[in-house]
Design a protein around this nucleic acid. Structure first.
Lengths: 126, 126, 126, 126
DNA sequence: GTGGTCTAGACCACA
DNA sequence: GTGGTCTAGACCACA
């Protein structure tokens, strides 16, 4: 289910978080569902266990998953209720928009990109 | 005129590029206007000359300025004519929007942010 | 495999680019093959890591290699698809021919040199 | 008669030498003709006298002109008989051709460029 | 381990 | 004075 692109320049642990969020948003993973163990996911994706560990730790800190020692990690129900993350991503969005504007992207173009992403998502993982 | 935030985690040379783009877009710097010399800007900002060098060389590659060894660096007129940069910034925008969406930012919110930035710019950040 | 002449007046990072291009064109390095790490190549050639960094970053910008922070640098498959580089090198060629002509090199001689280089390459220099 | 492009990245003293060689090759300047004084040429071209000085010194060393103290500088007749310069420019030509080849320029293209330059020269100074 | 950024300071060619 | 190259060495995030 999880997928990462080893050749992408976005950190693998970032991609793992995105992948998890997508699975949750698409309803594939529901609240209290178990996520793969660090080791199994690491061997399955051909990725260093440290990297999976880091992704899980961040996700736990962000309330995306919770872990029960000895039992594993599970999908949390606190995702929506984390204003920090929401503000953070809006802040990043603002910066990206600002950058685009500096480089000559028109407002209409920017809005069109927003609509496109919300309707059809993004093709190649990020 | 140029300003950088030494505490920011966005690289200083990146901030310098943004700062230059702003000055150019706001008409403070016009085509063929000289930009500060590597050394003077370095001492003025309290930054290592190498860092300014790197920023200037990137800007030259991107057609934002041109450098004449022995004479100085000047604002170029090729900024608009670089499709690579425009595509790059749209790509970054797409990624940021995608991320925002994953973290629960609504489409209307995203569009509102776009409009806000295009109307009033961005306060601090660079 | 890589080689540089520390005494040459062509910048070391320039020589490194040429050296890499040769290895790739001769088939020694193939697409997705790893190139030596910045540090290992630096110590191997007796050159400062920063210089290798600079060479690698230029090569990445030109699509000769791609770098994955934390993993290493690898041969890219985008080399051929960069029209900028081709135009640039033709421009440099034009200048060199013009200079040669000014200094009395005959047209036949120039053509003979072209043929010689294309048949047998170049001995030392880089 | 002499012309330089202050915006070009080829050193001004290089351009001056090229300009002089062109004038000589085109018969505008003949053997023993006087060339402008350092000061007059400097003010005429809006260039630093040091730069003119350097160009003249190099040209004298290369046998392109000779100077009579107190009288000025004159076109020499030793230009053609300087194998050093000829070899030098052939060497530079070889390097440029080699580079072009590395970047994918075909042999036919290179030869076409040679012919073009010998027939019609080069438009924008170098 | 890997690449990326930065400081401190030297030396070069050119104007 | 100017930009360009390079060394020496530090610290960071990521795998």
């Amino acid at each position: 289910m999880f997928s990462v692109d080893l050749k992408s320049r976005t950190p693998i642990y970032e991609q793992l978080k995105n992948s998890a969020l997508e699975l949750i948003m698409h309803g594939v993973l529901k609240v209290d569902d178990p996520v793969p163990s660090v080791r199994s996911l690491a061997s399955q994706l051909g990725v260093n266990p440290n990297t999976i560990q880091k992704a899980y730790q961040e996700m736990e800190r962000e309330g995306i998953i919770y872990s029960l020692p000895g039992k594993g990690s599970f999908v949390s129900d606190k995702i929506k209720s984390n204003p920090m993350l929401l503000n953070d991503s809006i802040e990043k969005l603002r910066t990206a928009i600002y950058q685009a504007r500096l480089y000559g992207v028109e407002e209409e173009t920017a809005i069109a990109v927003v609509k496109h992403v919300y309707e059809r998502g993004i093709s190649n993982e990020s």
